[in-house]
Design a binder for these strands. Sequence first.
DNA 1: GTGATGCTATAACGTCGTTATTTCAAGTGT
DNA 2: ACACTTGAAATAACGACGTTATAGCATCAC
Lengths: 193, 193
Amino acid sequence: MARTRDEQGRRILEAASELLSTEGASALSVRRIAAAAGCSTMGLYSRFGGKDGVVDELYAEGFERLVDGMKANLPTDDPVADLRRGAACYRDTALANSTHYMVMFGGAVPDFVPSDASHELAHAAFDGLVAKVARCTAAGLFEGSPDQITELLWGAIHGLVMLEIVGINPLMSDPGARFERALDVLFRGLARG
Amino acid sequence: MARTRDEQGRRILEAASELLSTEGASALSVRRIAAAAGCSTMGLYSRFGGKDGVVDELYAEGFERLVDGMKANLPTDDPVADLRRGAACYRDTALANSTHYMVMFGGAVPDFVPSDASHELAHAAFDGLVAKVARCTAAGLFEGSPDQITELLWGAIHGLVMLEIVGINPLMSDPGARFERALDVLFRGLARG
DNA sequence: GTGATGCTATAACGTCGTTATTTCAAGTGT
DNA sequence: ACACTTGAAATAACGACGTTATAGCATCAC
């Protein structure tokens, strides 16, 4: 789809993404974005229909980064190790883009609801993970349907990442180690046996 | 702690909780809460220091509901089944109080950060779950430390609940069945042997 | 009775998302 | 060349937000 966008539109998105990354979702105001992009507030309305239109692009950008982050490492001949590495990349990318992540999953922008197109992008990100899981089931290493395995795997990973971002850590333990332990348990539970 | 609270203070909290439950976090404005409680906006400032003080009470209320929801069913002689039932109660309570849940974990109120006291309450809720897990490890049914098991279990459960609340469901599958499948995998991965 | 104290409501300030109005340059017809 | 329309831009305004300052008004000490 990749809608064509004029120079000003690109500046707006860049300014919005920068604001979100550096100051968080509450810095995403129409006036501040417009000022940073060097135009008036109306520039956002004529091009994106309003604040939510811009946020929707950031939502999509977040999923793109997530997908790219997981595509980074190439498949080897060990599908389970690949999947595990993909999960680690998911966490790394989410933490490196935590403010985007909170817009995507945490409701950080009040009353924002993603467009259908963006929702589909979220599902496409899911499909990328399914492919990694399918290699494990195809090799007879995991039990169950790739779709169903992926959705529970994703949910579990998402929850751990989310707690890490919002800073809920009852044991004051190392989040990285906790994440690895969780993957151990999940993979053990999924293993054919 | 349970700070003593005058009649007006109780009315404010009740009105705020009602607003959050029925209309969501974005309906939580100082003016609306004050109007619903029958006082002026200053009533919130003199008693709670501002909006965040009230939200902090709702945050705590959410954790109390979560703890109460899990305490509902009494322990039997099957600790794993008890734990599983506790997890299901966690999900039920979270879904029944989804707007509270989004305040607690989702950053639904911009720039709100829970007080130290409320943070400790969150950890206390965690401890309740630890006790259920400890019964499983004590009986030799689970492998590992109860603390560490609980934090990964909680993270996984939290993620699934969160995705359910925000409506991300790539497979359009039944969330209840998905949740049960996830528990199957987790418990299998945790089982001794 | 009078001044001080503390709680209350009202009003004000700056910011928010959004909409209405105005401005202004480019294009069109004659 | 000039009046006129058109479309996109900036500016101004509206109502609501969190918060702070101000003013009203009880209650108490003396």
